[in-house]
Simulated scan of single mutants.
Amino acid sequence: MTPDDIVALLREHWPRTVAALDPAAREELAAVLAALADATGERDTQAALRRLRRVLRALPDDHPVALALREAGAVRFSGTSETRVVDRVPVLALLAALHAPPERAADPDPVRARLLAAPALAAADVAAAPGDPGLIRLRHPELGDRYPRFQFAADGRDTARPLPVVGVINRLLMADRDPWGAADWWLGGNRWLRGVPADLLGSVPDEELARAARELVEGD
């Protein structure tokens, strides 16, 4: 597990993590996150990570973050760069969420909050394998796995079935690896299409939607 993996783990389970810590531990968590964001090299980063893991020892044994850290063992840096630090953007997002008013403290990422607010289905309502790489699956901190509704059409049994063009495009966007990025493409404005791709399903030819996705992928 890398330092960035630990930050991603915290983001995934943020509301539950904050709720499990007492006020003193939350204050220490804020100080540790600030130190992690300010670290300028591997030594500073490692020191902040040691403090972070001490704070997280206060989590219940069955907490998903505690379980993942126990299974991961040592923290290792990836790559060979001389300056080894974490990505500051998600760390600062967590820090901002910790200082936010109570009604916003559970939302460390406004983009994810926007995507989770879109109409979605639970796994039980989807007529497809949960691990289908052609489907976007977003993890809701309270509701579990959610599948954005635009991906499906209802069949005669009122069971949602995936739209073929959505599966093609989701594979282009590597939705199985980056579901949030794929969801943001579908639910955000697209200058090439002059609209929101999810809203254009059925009114714009499938090939035009796929071509817009290929433009993005090939442009990268």
Rank of each mutant, 00 (worst) to 15 (best):
D87F: 12
L163P: 13
D87K: 08
P130V: 01
P141E: 04
P119M: 10
G144D: 08
D145F: 01
G167L: 14
A154S: 12
P148V: 04
A124C: 08
R161G: 04
P110N: 03
A123K: 06
T159Y: 13
I136M: 08
A129L: 15
F77K: 02
F77Y: 13
A105Y: 03
I136C: 08
G131W: 03
P164Q: 01
P164N: 01
D145K: 03
L98Q: 10
P164E: 00
E82W: 12
H140W: 07
V126H: 13
D107C: 12
P119L: 08
D158K: 11
A118K: 15
E142R: 12
A128L: 05
A93V: 02
F152N: 03
A118M: 14
S78W: 08
L135R: 04
A160S: 11
P90I: 15
V126Q: 05
A120I: 09
R88M: 04
D125I: 15
T159R: 15
A127N: 05
L143D: 15
T83K: 14
A122D: 14
V168T: 03
D125W: 14
F150N: 04
G131C: 02
F150H: 05
F152C: 06
R88W: 02
A113S: 15
P110V: 08
L163N: 01
G79D: 02
P110E: 15
A113D: 15
G131P: 03
L135D: 05
V165R: 00
L98P: 12
A154D: 15
R157Q: 13
P102E: 05
Y147R: 13
A120Y: 09
L116K: 13
D125N: 09
V168L: 04
R76N: 09
F152I: 01
G131T: 08
L163K: 11
D107W: 12
A96K: 14
D132V: 11
D132A: 10
A120F: 09
L163D: 09
V126Y: 05
